[in-house]
Design a protein around this nucleic acid. Sequence first.
DNA 1: CCTAATGCCTCTAGCCACTAGAGCTTCAAG
DNA 2: CTTGAAGCTCTAGTGGCTAGAGGCATTAGG
Lengths: 138, 138
Amino acid sequence: MFSIGALSKSTGVKVPTIRYYEQIGLIAPATRNAGNQRRYDQAGLERLGFIKHARDLGFGLEEIRELMALNGELGQDCRAADELARAQLEKVRARIARLRRLETELERITHLCVDGAGGTCQVLTALGDHSQCLGQHD
Amino acid sequence: MFSIGALSKSTGVKVPTIRYYEQIGLIAPATRNAGNQRRYDQAGLERLGFIKHARDLGFGLEEIRELMALNGELGQDCRAADELARAQLEKVRARIARLRRLETELERITHLCVDGAGGTCQVLTALGDHSQCLGQHD
DNA sequence: CCTAATGCCTCTAGCCACTAGAGCTTCAAG
DNA sequence: CTTGAAGCTCTAGTGGCTAGAGGCATTAGG
């Protein structure tokens, strides 16, 4: 049985975050010792480890809730899990695509600075004017 | 002079967002007509357009505040603006790099589903177990 | 000129996923 | 037995909005 601090250290999830997860019902309320402190077992450690890894992979807490439910009573629903993972992959790809468009525009804008030329700052102008952009970002 | 709705339509910034920007001091309080409604002029339109475009490029509101200050009384500080743009570019690139690592792992995980094989779901296992990952994400 | 529909006003609360802090109790090492 | 770290609960704040309630202003049509 570990304390919340030990659990935190071995999973990399911060102590207040663990309490927060309990509060919103993502993990079951921990058993308590005589002094009202939370105690965790191996299963609790593994569940939190799962959450941590899924968070690192970019899943939201609600999606993680679903994923954990798939691991539940009726055996494992592998197809559903795979679908959630694919959906997540699509989200990640869409975000990459958007960020690449931003990268392109920001690259262009940072090349505009010819400091000391006087007059109006082309960087500031470009930041404010979408019509100068090469394409659609956002 | 436009109403807040007209300003919203021509910039693409939603009405409550405009009021929010005023509330946090990102834009100056608008002048009001006899019936206490906000009225905007061309300069107000341009300032909001600047904010919108910078937001679309991924700048935070505090960075936008700085950018707008650079456009201020003492002429334009082009070098500072360029630095902010470069910093933003670096942030975007870092986020792209991270998302690409996630993409790699999620691709791998979604290839694990051999539905119907019975037993444990490899997708769920992989989601919970970082040691299976090819590299460091996050 | 009157009415109805739309637009605008303020204010409060909620979203996500935490994070920080106050003020208290419990545990573990020496 | 003392002391300092770690735990507890509770509240409030973060960023950047968004939603809703309940009430005034404007405007287009008849």
